[in-house]
């Protein structure tokens, strides 16, 4: 494989990893505050359909991305109402969100099935983007890629260097202590849930605006679930999300190339590799480490203020 070819392959790895990074970093922030939102897949797919619809109607990728974000926020607010406002089991609430999202995305995307538009444009900086082998990889990605990296950096800074981030982590560690200190447990959780929703919506919009510039039903194909697994895989640390997403992106691209090269293994089985890889990753992570020691201690527990 030539170096140019390698650069192209690496670029596809980056594009495959980007939606996973965006969705996972949002979920990571929510989980650090103690909220497990299994609705990522649902919010992502609605983000994809609404994002495409808005971009197609307006002709603007930016408007599409914003619409995707808005859709994610609206859906996650439903989750917040159930799981935080009414203290309902978070697993069940998240599942209901995914089921609703898959249905809604089909309804809203139906008029746009079969429509196509230009993929989001890629950065082109004179000279820099033309550097051989790495120029396009570093300076020639679409804006979502840079946004994703910026998002991870911002989340790392927020969680580890700001007082609000400290408050958020404290609430995820022990909501009873946090409440006793007068920290606004539910408000912080609602906000972090909405942030997670915004990220999931944006990740979905990326799929229909940049990754494959069209809408098709079910196009997230479990990426929301993989993003959830990535958060576990990353041990709830922002930069490890990037590493994990690149590994998964790599597996996806590799299996696509293997299918194209028809190496004699059935395509369906190759298509199953990202899912199997997720299971294997969860297994590897669990071996050795004492059980979920890295997980926020209050993750998934409903909070009701007591006397």
């Amino acid at each position: 494989m030539s170096a140019d070819m390698l650069e192209l392959v690496l670029m596809t790895v980056v594009t495959a990893a980007t939606p996973l990074i965006i969705a996972a970093i949002g979920e990571l922030v929510a989980e650090r505050s103690g909220v497990l939102n299994l609705g990522v897949e649902g919010m992502m797919i609605v983000g994809a359909s609404v994002g495409f619809a808005a971009a197609f109607s307006s002709g603007s990728t930016l408007i599409g991305a914003l619409a995707g974000i808005a859709a994610g926020v609206v859906l996650s607010s439903l989750f917040a109402l159930l799981a935080i406002g009414l203290a309902i089991n978070q697993v069940a609430s998240g599942l209901s969100l995914t089921i609703l999202g898959v249905g809604l995305s089909g309804l809203m995307g139906a008029p746009f099935v079969g429509q196509k538009r230009e993929a989001a444009s890629r950065l082109a900086i004179p000279y820099l983007s033309d550097i051989p082998y790495v120029g396009r990889l570093v300076f020639g990605e679409d804006m979502f890629v840079y946004a994703a990296i910026a998002l991870v950096a911002a989340c790392w800074w927020f969680l580890n260097r700001t007082r609000a981030g400290l408050t958020l982590r404290a609430i995820g560690d022990n909501h009873h202590s946090a409440h006793a200190l007068g920290l606004p447990v539910r408000r912080v959780r609602v906000l972090s849930t909405l942030f997670g929703g915004a990220c999931a919506g944006l990740a979905g919009a990326y799929l229909s605006l940049a990754y494959t510039p069209f809408w098709s039903p079910g196009m997230t194909a479990g990426r929301g679930w993989i993003a959830l697994a990535l958060v576990v895989f990353a041990s709830w640390k922002p930069w490890r999300v990037v590493l994990g997403a690149l590994l998964f992106g790599g597996a996806t691209v590799l299996q696509l190339h293997a299918q194209a090269a028809s190496i004699g293994v059935p395509g369906q089985l190759l298509s199953a590799t990202p899912y199997l890889a997720t299971i294997v990753a969860l297994m590897i992570l669990s071996i050795g480490a004492r059980r979920n020691a890295a997980a926020p201690a209050a993750l998934g527990q409903p909070f009701v203020a007591t006397r």
Binding site: S96, I99, G106
Partner: peptide, 13 residues
């Protein structure tokens, strides 16, 4: 058909 699925999501909520 997606209407059915969306309705099911609403119902579960």
């Amino acid at each position: 058909q997606d209407m059915t699925r969306a309705y099911q999501g609403i119902l579960l909520m």
